Simulated scan of single mutants.
Amino acid sequence: MGLQRWQGKLTVIDEVEYWTSPLLGIHFELTPENLQIFYPDRRPFLSTVALAALTEQAEKRAELAEAENARLKELLRQAGVIEF
């Protein structure tokens, strides 16, 4: 079952299986297995699991970048190019 706000009230969406929000343009596809949500350009919304994995990857890349930055700063300091 789906609901939408229309003129300040919640109304039932009769056919939610392949419904597109008239206000947001996002598209919903409901199957017996799951619910998929798509942006107006039909790119799928990422699941919370996929978002968590991307966040973890980004955090690891940030840690590696910080370590590389510290290593390069130390090389510059040892070469007398910069002082800290």
Rank of each mutant, 00 (worst) to 15 (best):
T55D: 13
T20C: 00
Q36W: 14
L46R: 12
R42D: 15
F38R: 03
E68V: 05
E56F: 14
K9Q: 13
R71F: 07
T31Q: 01
E68H: 08
D14Q: 09
E66M: 10
L3S: 06
E83M: 09
D41L: 03
H27E: 07
R42M: 14
V49D: 11
V16E: 04
P32M: 11
W6I: 13
R42S: 15
N34S: 10
N69L: 15
D14W: 10
E59V: 05
Q7S: 07
L64Q: 08
N34I: 00
W6S: 06
V12D: 04
Q36G: 14
A50T: 15
L72E: 10
N69P: 10
S47Y: 08
E29Y: 09
E29I: 14
F28K: 00
Q7Y: 03
K60E: 05
A50R: 01
K60Y: 11
V49P: 06
K73M: 11
R71H: 04
A62Q: 10
F28R: 00
R43D: 09
I82W: 05
L51C: 07
L72K: 02
S21Y: 01
D41I: 06
E59Y: 05
D41R: 00
T11I: 11
A62D: 07
A70H: 05
E15A: 13
A62R: 07
T20L: 00
A67S: 14
L10D: 12
P40R: 12
Q7R: 01
R5W: 11
T11N: 04
P32L: 08
L54R: 15
P22V: 06
T55Q: 15
D41F: 08
I13V: 05
E29P: 03
L64A: 12
Q7D: 13
G2T: 03
N69G: 10
S47D: 04
E29S: 11
T31M: 01
A65K: 02
E29M: 07
Y18W: 08
Q7W: 02
R43A: 09
R77T: 09
M1F: 15
G8D: 06
A53R: 01
L75N: 02
R43S: 08
A67Y: 07
L35H: 00
R71I: 02
Q57C: 09
E33S: 14
T48I: 15
P44H: 01
F45N: 02
L46G: 09
K60N: 15
L75Y: 02
F38E: 10
R5H: 10
T48R: 07
D14C: 13
H27N: 01
H27K: 02
V12T: 04
G2S: 03
E15L: 00
A65G: 15
R71A: 06
L75W: 10
G2N: 06
L46S: 08
R42W: 14
A50V: 14
L35V: 01
G8M: 06
A65D: 15
R42Q: 13
Q78W: 11
P32R: 00
R61Q: 08
L76T: 01
R61Y: 15
M1V: 08
I26V: 12
A79M: 03
A62F: 09
A67R: 09
L23D: 06
L3G: 07
D41V: 09
N34H: 04
T31N: 00
Q4Y: 11
V16N: 01
L3N: 04
Q78A: 09
P44L: 13
